[in-house]
Design a protein around this nucleic acid. Structure first.
Lengths: 212, 212
DNA sequence: CATGAATAGGGAAAAATTCCCGATGGTTTT
DNA sequence: AAAACCATCGGGAATTTTTCCCTATTCATG
């Protein structure tokens, strides 16, 4: 009984590497590849895989957006996101979206295989490093205010914290500047920061951005 | 031939410690202490010390401000600033103001004595850690854009980067919001950043603020 | 003493932010 | 299934911030 997997990443080199890695395990079969979220969504219906393994950051519709689309049409879909972000918030957003696995690229290669296997059996998989951070945060009783943000708010927040102007964000997200401005105000309220400066520092504290 | 020193720090405990440290060296004599920049300025005229050893961060007139006042009236004054900031920019500002020595608190205790002795003999003293950073920056050819800022601009920049609002800065510096706003625009130009976000990241990169 | 740099701020226009509100489309609850 | 909710999206208008341009004062320096 093999597990059918769809591989989604915009870099073909990465896809090859992943394919090799996963196929080294006999019960895994790469049924299809896709280089965009849009394509992944299309072929999902044709292939009906057991698991989708998808990069979080891709041009156009990102991994999370694509995951949400798929889950909307196929609520039972099992999706594993892999990501370069070790930040807790990204994992939180992904799981909130209904994704079943979150693996960081800095983790072990075996983790990826394990994640796909676990998820194919209905389990949930979370990378060791992220799990540890969350566990520690929880134990200390520290709350992550970023988790109050909705998916869209988080997206806007991240872009603004990266230094994008309201105008740019509006364009990237294809929504009006007005909407972004309104989100901005709302986000600042939710995070109880009063200036862009505090916002950046918060983002930095939670590992969303670096000082370079 | 002893060296007369004025000790300036707002914490009396720190003053005691410094006094003990410096007096362990027989050629140093603490002629007076002051807990504010204002007071330091006043007693400078009465005591006419060989060296002023002054903390950079004090309520009211900070160490740099006080140093500038003293140097204005007594251009031959020899002042050593000690500071918790290892950031290059602080040292740069201090030396630009005419201070003869800059010692970080993280350095060795002996450095402080050495600094006072060196400066008393007309030499200039710069803490090892800061000197090293500057040297490395210079060798790499990296320029520190913060050095383009004037003293006042730097002050405004630092406060804004810390998260203070324009209004707060105006109040703290006892100048109008209008002036701060104008400085703000000017600073962004000089540093060629276009948003508060970039400003914070620059400040963090240069160690003026931490991510907490 | 002229010159230039640093500091301080006014006035007016432009841009960003806030606040309030309405609309739509999913989900969840009852 | 209807009702209630929430996320998303944006318009309008008031307010605040930011920008740009100019002027004045002080001080150090050639």
């Amino acid at each position: 009984m093999t597990v059918k997997v769809i591989l989604v990443d915009d870099h073909s080199v990465v896809r090859s590497g992943l394919r090799r890695l996963l196929e080294s395990h006999k019960s895994l079969e790469i049924a299809a590849e896709a280089d965009t979220g849009e394509l992944a969504y299309q072929i999902y219906g044709e292939v009906l895989p057991d698991v989708v393994l998808m990069d979080i950051s891709m041009p156009g519709m990102g991994g999370l957006e694509a995951a949400k689309r798929i889950l909307q049409r196929y609520p039972q879909a099992r999706i594993v996101i892999f990501s370069m972000h070790e930040a807790v918030s990204f994992a939180a957003q992904a799981l909130k979206a209904g994704v079943k696995g979150y693996v960081t690229k800095t983790g072990l290669a075996e983790d990826l295989v394990q994640a796909v296997l676990d998820v194919s059996r209905g389990k949930t998989f979370l990378s060791q490093d992220v799990a540890q951070k969350i566990a520690l945060q929880t134990l200390i009783g520290e709350t992550n205010p970023l988790q109050q943000l909705t998916s869209r708010e988080f997206e806007v927040f991240r872009l603004l914290a990266e230094g994008k102007r309201v105008e740019d964000v509006a364009e990237m997200l294809k929504i009006s500047q007005k909407t972004v401005a309104n989100y901005y105000t709302l986000i600042k309220q939710k995070l109880s920061v009063s200036s862009p400066v505090e916002m950046v520092r918060l983002a930095m504290k939670h590992g969303l951005i670096d000082a370079e």
